[in-house]
Design a protein around this nucleic acid. Structure first.
Lengths: 225, 225, 225, 225
DNA sequence: TATGAATGAGGCTTCATTCAT
DNA sequence: AATGAATGAAGCCTCATTCAT
């Protein structure tokens, strides 16, 4: 009885170890340059064993992708809830912080998804991924609609806000990773706060006095979400 | 005498044709999926001939990269000049427009550079690339410094502006290309104008009445450049 | 006591289920393309359990082969008995009908045997298979000998009849299966009867004057069976 | 000038050597058990070189198949011509002799075709193959039609003759190869002539009174071709 | 006794680069 | 100078069989 459960658990654990190892290697060596054999070696199992857990290498990657997307969605759901309770910048910050928590990882997943789409491997899983993403987008759009109705942000199609904010965060992720900027950026923390400030205030209709964004964004005013 | 010159010219012309063909193919099929053979076929020369012009496939890509970067620098230099004559948003717009002129191409070059860096092929050429980029950055930074001294934009390290703007454009490029957003974005032009508006006004210290950026950015106020 | 018997019975039953499942799958998917895992899944047992019953995958196939051959031999033995009672075409018909009863199956076994021989797996079992087959052949040969003595079929080595008939049936089996002929053959039943007719009358010596077959064997008289 | 021609010739020659080597190996080891590497080794070239000549392993096999089928068609065309000049058995003999000239090879091609069809690789080439075959069949059918009109062979659908003859030859090929019969058959030549005689006279209407074939087709008279 | 996770050899294919002509 | 045939390392995936539980 117990034995069976234990076995299943060990199986799941190994699956996780495969995923972990794959992620590690991807972060270390980049999307290309990770082979199934490397993954197997790192987990210290045979190549074939990988295929007991995953149908293909792509499926491993898709799993990583989905897990990441889901955790992002989770955090955003909470933040959207908070926004409805008044903390209007919560989603913007949650989104920014989630994705910037580990920019390398975020970027990796961008690339991974892109490649899988380009080669048209696993189109159904990609569709599923987009479903998750769309659910988030809808929730955010509702927040924007409300803010627009309240006259706090400029009236434009709601997706302008989501898209623009996405673009900014996307760019920030790339910036973080960029070798070219590495030498220039002395105060990365500060810069990121600055960028987040910009993001949070997209579309703001300010009747207020000039922002005193001394340094970190006075993240508060009306905003993204 | 003349013959020699002609020969050299033909040689150069063919080199350009190789570069053009490579770019075309890269845009058509993506970074992975272009082979030296395909390039040779499109130029209608032998594979071996390619290696008379370029030491490796990577070198072809590096040349494309450099050419792109140089043309970008060129346009920016002009715009920085204009900024110094008063058209303060010129560099921001020039940068945005240059990169968004063909987002697919811009993105391609991002990926290419990244890949070359990752595999650490051609480190010296990469260094050269960064030199070009840094020259631009310096010029821009001087523009920002001046605006800050004039109290038109918030006082932060100058590279904050450059970096943030870069991030936004970078993100816009990705957005343009993104399959996930493709369905959502109905008015791409409008969105891009909106994003540019955001970029142009980063850091603005507005004592003025709320922006009426009805739609396209009332690109004017103090800004990026 | 009883328990033990029951156990043995259950064991045997399962063995049969494995064999049945294997045959089904082979017919569905072809020789290559059936895995041990598929068989286990269909029987709803573990892969390992299969190896409690059979030493190897080849052994499963060999068992199927032997069973088929034995049932064929059984039917032929009866028919040879009938031939001795006067129904001279009984063996020919029995043989034809047995093999044509399920041409797909018959063909499958041909292929299986061939493959096992080619890879020289299980040479002793193959030898045993041939022993069964030879027993049949001998019985048939005796029938032919008698017919020749009676002057009903042409006098040639007895195995000519057996072999030729085998060839014809073999060919009919292939014909049945052939994709190329599928479109052409409108009346399969009619064709098969026609072929059987040919087979049954191989070597017949008609009451007519001998054929002057320019080229080779002139054929006539009652036949194979 | 000449150099180029020479080069092309050497290229073609190598292609032929690949085909030859593949055929040799297939005959030696059977369809399964021949790897691309083996072929390359035998020709003493690199594995990759094979793929300069052929798109895939399947294509090599298809080429062998087509070549074989074409040579068969060629010979039959001649024989059908002869049949029209009076040598009525010419096609039957040509067909039999062609296929029996190297039964191992003939059988190999049967298997190869079958496998390629089963795995649905190269469906267009298979279609082309069948086109060749159908052309032959049509020609033969016309011969049969005429014989039936002349009252020399039994009146049945024309494809009965073609199919039955095909079946017999097919079976003879298998017989030739069969390990089980190997020990039994002492006079192979004689047997083959015997079988061909059977084939040549399928459907013959002798000058004698019709056979009372209890069961079905009564067979006799000049035939097939 | 039954299980099924683990194994790893082995097969096909791709493509940047070389080099003889 | 131009060619393109040849190379071979490297990658993904399959599956019969084993063996610890």
């Amino acid at each position: 009885m117990d034995k069976a459960k234990e076995k299943v658990q060990r199986f799941r654990a190994r699956e996780q170890r495969i995923l972990d190892a794959a992620l590690e290697l991807l972060l270390e060596h980049g999307e290309e340059k990770v082979t199934v054999e490397q993954i197997a070696d790192r987990v210290d199992i045979g190549k074939g064993t990988i295929y007991k857990h995953f149908v293909s290498k792509t499926e491993i990657y898709m799993r990583l992708l989905m897990d990441y997307e889901r955790s992002l969605a989770e955090r955003l759901k909470v933040a959207v809830g908070n926004a409805e309770q008044g903390d209007i910048t919560a989603p913007a910050r949650a989104y920014f912080e989630s994705r910037m928590a580990d920019p390398g990882k975020d970027r990796l997943f961008q690339r991974l998804e892109e490649k899988i789409i380009a080669l048209n491997q696993a189109p159904e899983m990609i569709a599923e991924l987009h479903t998750i993403r769309n659910a988030i987008a809808s929730a955010l759009n509702r927040v924007f609609e409300r803010r627009m109705e309240q006259g706090m942000i400029k009236r434009v199609p709601a997706y302008y806000y989501y898209s623009t904010y996405w673009a900014l965060v996307q760019g920030a992720v790339e910036l973080y990773h960029s070798k070219s900027f590495a030498d220039v950026i002395e105060d990365r923390e500060g810069l990121m706060e600055f960028i987040m400030g910009v993001g949070v205030h997209i579309g703001d209709i300010s009747s207020r006095k000039p922002q005193e964004t001394s340094h970190s964004g006075d993240i508060a005013g009306p905003s993204f979400g």
